[in-house]
């Protein structure tokens, strides 16, 4: 008995080692679990605050190019505003009922918020982005995120002041897309390698499109409005079973340089979700 005890005392670091490795492995395995991730990610307040302080400093270095992009974006928005005004005026001229329809549809649609990226990773197979808006700002899960260049990702989880975005560069991310000019839609999925490219999987063979065609959001899910740009088709290949096409898409967003994003929420989302859920329950 004494020898066993002595043995255990002498080798106690083995037990500590096993214990600590055990804890680490539990953490690794539960990494995929949504709830436990909340504790240990940069959406947590301590890490989030430090990251936003550092981003404050960081953002000064890219102010100039950021400004140019914003000015350009402003210009296009002004053009669009002018166009919409013209349309509205034409409609007004046509009849009052049409104007009523037009404004009503607008109010039913999407609303936008802006946010800043405070943390961003590129080198893993499952990347995440942290932004500085959370539940307190009306941002919650399943809202779409895009920058002035194109789609960035979908909000994965939110804490009070921060949210984590599941970007296009995450194996778990699937965004419903459409090739501009054709009506067939398909999912965009990342293969975990090059951060500049993603893949459209399960493209139907009868769909007509060419290399260089633009890929946009489909607008079928209530997360993104239709026609937000995603990328450009680079090259086409057959899927492994030969039933579908697989297209390599060059993403418009440069994930290593993106810093300001817009968040889009849908007023009709809950209604659409409930309707779709009630169908599943039947």
């Amino acid at each position: 008995m004494q020898t066993i005890l002595n043995f255990l005392i002498k080798h106690n670091h083995w037990f500590l080692f096993t214990l600590l490795e055990g804890i680490s492995f539990v953490l690794i395995v539960s990494f995929n679990n949504y709830q436990s991730a909340v504790m240990f990610t940069s959406a947590n307040n301590v890490a989030g605050n430090i990251y936003s302080a550092i981003t404050d400093v960081d953002s000064y270095f890219s102010l100039k190019s950021e400004n140019e992009i914003l000015t350009e974006h402003n210009r296009t928005l002004l053009e669009e505003l002018e166009q919409t005004r013209n349309e509205l005026n034409t409609l007004k001229d046509n009849n009052l009922l049409a104007v009523h329809e037009f404004t009503r549809n607008k109010a039913d649609g999407f609303y936008y918020k802006s946010a800043r990226i405070v943390n961003n990773s590129l080198n893993k197979t499952d990347n995440y982005i942290t932004i500085d808006k959370g539940i307190n700002d009306g941002v919650h899960e399943e809202m779409g995120v895009f920058s002035e260049k194109g789609v960035v990702g979908i909000i994965y989880q939110s804490s009070a002041n921060y949210s984590i975005v599941l970007p296009l560069l995450n194996g778990k991310s699937k965004v419903n897309c459409r090739v501009k000019g054709s009506n067939s839609f398909c999912a965009l999925q990342w293969d975990g390698n090059d951060t500049r490219y993603s893949y459209l999987v399960d493209l139907p063979r009868y769909a007509a499109f060419e290399m260089g065609d633009t890929v946009v959001t489909s607008g079928f899910s209530s997360i993104f409005p239709a026609d937000i740009p995603v990328g450009r088709i680079q090259n086409l290949e057959e899927s492994e079973d030969g039933l579908f096409y697989r297209a390599k898409v060059e993403l418009f967003v440069d994930f290593s340089a993106v810093s300001n994003v817009f968040i889009v929420g849908s007023n009709g989302k809950n209604e659409q979700d409930e309707l779709e859920k009630s169908l599943e329950e039947k």
Binding site: S24, L27, I28, F31, T41, S42, A47, N119, S121, I164
Partner: peptide, 14 residues
């Protein structure tokens, strides 16, 4: 905690 990789660095460092 900061790198969103719960457990990975901890296990390797241990």
């Amino acid at each position: 905690m900061f790198c969103n990789t719960p457990g990975i660095n901890a296990a390797a460092a241990t």
